[in-house]
């Protein structure tokens, strides 16, 4: 499979060739800049290439959705970001968006319509689940994941905010690994501690960090892999694992990375 030539077309390039993609892949800021989450972006792009999904990205024309600004109470900045993005998206006539970030997903899906931006927005967990169900992604069952224990950390903005609980679990089950659940899951899932713009400031005084509380819960399952589906959760859980000095025995991986591994990409 390594001979595959990966393509990452931009909307501008496609528009110049008079083409329209099936779907826009909204990369998000961490997916674009964070060294760890860039690997998730690359994994997802490899899957899209391998499957033959006609997609495009905005490249340098992408910009923060404004989610952290809005959650931090800065509505002016949020609306500025949103309206700028809506202009770009509408200019390219974007209809369908897939993103690996639940915060981008929620904002694009639920909050851009308030300002006139209407798109079909889908999180990559649902997108991957659909590809698996349609048989477009075939996982080499048995090999890589057979007998391994994976636990899944529900992102708040995917789960409670948008009711997506099954898709990521179905993806994990397709890997033929053993899904071991934490105590607080689905609608009762515990936040990683990064949402609401907490990622961008020191936490208020308390007796513990939220990500440590959640990491301990994940470690208690005995899983060797903590699956995440959100770049913020990825940062918080990875920090938690480092804090617990377990980074050698426990991996924090995104769904896209697990699927790419399962595909041998």
């Amino acid at each position: 499979m390594s001979e595959i030539e990966y393509k990452v077309p931009t909307m501008a390039e496609m528009a110049a060739n008079g083409e329209t993609p099936e779907v826009l892949f909204w990369v998000g800021c961490l997916g674009s800049f964070d060294d760890r989450y860039k690997k998730v972006t690359v994994a997802f792009v490899k899957i899209l290439n391998a499957v033959g999904v006609k997609f495009a990205v905005l490249g340098t024309e992408e910009s923060c959705t404004g989610d952290p600004a809005r959650r931090a109470g800065n509505e002016f900045l949020f609306q500025m970001q949103a309206m700028t993005n809506i202009q770009v998206l509408d200019m390219y006539g974007v209809k369908k968006i897939v993103t690996a970030c639940p915060h981008c997903f929620n904002t694009l899906k639920n909050e851009y319509p308030q300002l006139g931006g209407n798109y079909e927005v889908i999180h990559h967990s649902t997108f991957l689940q659909q590809l698996i169900n349609e048989g477009r992604v075939r996982l080499e069952g048995g090999g890589t994941f057979k007998g391994r224990k994976i636990t899944f950390h529900d992102p708040c903005y995917l789960g409670r905010a948008n009711g997506v609980y099954e898709a990521p679990r179905e993806v994990l089950e397709a890997l033929d690994a053993e899904l071991v659940e934490m105590k607080r899951i689905r609608s009762k899932g515990l936040c990683c501690g990064a949402g609401g713009a907490q990622m961008f400031k020191e936490p208020e005084p308390g007796w513990k960090e939220v990500n440590i509380e959640r990491t301990e819960e994940a470690l208690n399952t005995g899983a060797d892999t903590i699956a995440v589906a959100c770049p913020f959760c990825m940062v918080m859980m990875s920090d938690g694992i480092k804090n617990k000095e377990r980074e050698n025995s426990v991996k924090v991986l995104d769904l896209a990375e697990l699927v790419a591994q399962g595909q041998g990409l």
């Binding site: 393509k7 990452v8 990369v27 792009v45």
Partner: peptide, 9 residues
């Protein structure tokens, strides 16, 4: 912002 794709492109 688009540097993540450099190795792929």
């Amino acid at each position: 912002r688009f540097n993540w794709a450099n190795n792929l492109r």
